[in-house]
C-alpha cells in the first residue's frame, strides 16, 4: 500500500451531521468501525477494548443505531506513562429502511463488537430471469 493511501485510511472521516451524531468528543471516545456489505446483510465491526458484555448497550430506535460501551477498569498502580484513557465509547448511525431491525444480531469477542444487520426482503439483490 502506498504512503498516500495509508494516510488517507488513517484519517478519521468527517462525519456528516445528518447521518451520524457524536457526543462531546472530550467525554466519549468514538470507536473505529468497519462496515461492509454481504449479499443478505450489513456487517458492522467496532473496536471497543475494555468493554464487557455488561457494559455494552446496542439500541435501535427510530432508525438510529446506537452503540454505547462503558469501561469499568483502570490500569492499577501509579501511572508512569499514559497513551490511552478508557472513557466510555459512543457512536450512532442512521439505518436505512432496508435493514430488518428485528433480526439484528450482536456478539462481542476480544473487545470487538460484531453486528449483523440483515437486509429486509425487498432490499436483497434479486436475479431477474431473462425471458426469451
Amino acid at each position: 500500500m502506498s504512503a498516500i493511501e495509508k494516510t488517507v485510511a488513517e484519517t478519521p472521516e468527517r462525519v456528516e451531521a445528518s447521518h451520524e451524531v457524536t457526543r462531546e468528543p472530550e467525554r466519549y471516545a468514538v470507536p473505529p468501525v468497519d462496515i461492509y456489505e454481504e449479499d443478505d446483510r450489513l456487517v458492522v465491526l467496532a473496536d471497543l477494548p475494555g468493554v464487557t458484555r455488561d457494559g455494552l448497550s446496542v439500541q435501535v430506535e427510530q432508525g438510529i443505531l446506537t452503540i454505547e460501551g462503558r469501561v469499568a477498569r483502570e490500569t492499577p498502580g501509579n501511572l508512569l506513562s499514559r497513551e490511552f484513557e478508557l472513557v466510555p465509547f459512543f457512536r450512532q448511525f442512521r439505518l436505512t429502511e432496508t435493514v430488518d431491525t428485528d433480526k439484528i444480531r450482536a456478539s462481542l469477542q476480544h473487545g470487538v463488537l460484531r453486528l449483523d444487520l440483515p437486509k429486509a426482503e425487498e432490499a436483497k439483490p434479486r436475479r431477474i430471469p431473462i425471458e426469451a
Binding site: 485510511a9 472521516e13 468501525v33 462496515i35 450489513l42
Partner: peptide, 9 residues
C-alpha cells in the same frame, strides 16, 4: 468495493 467504512486498521 463492499466496504462502506474501513477505519479499523
Amino acid at each position: 468495493e463492499a466496504f462502506h467504512r474501513s477505519e479499523r486498521s
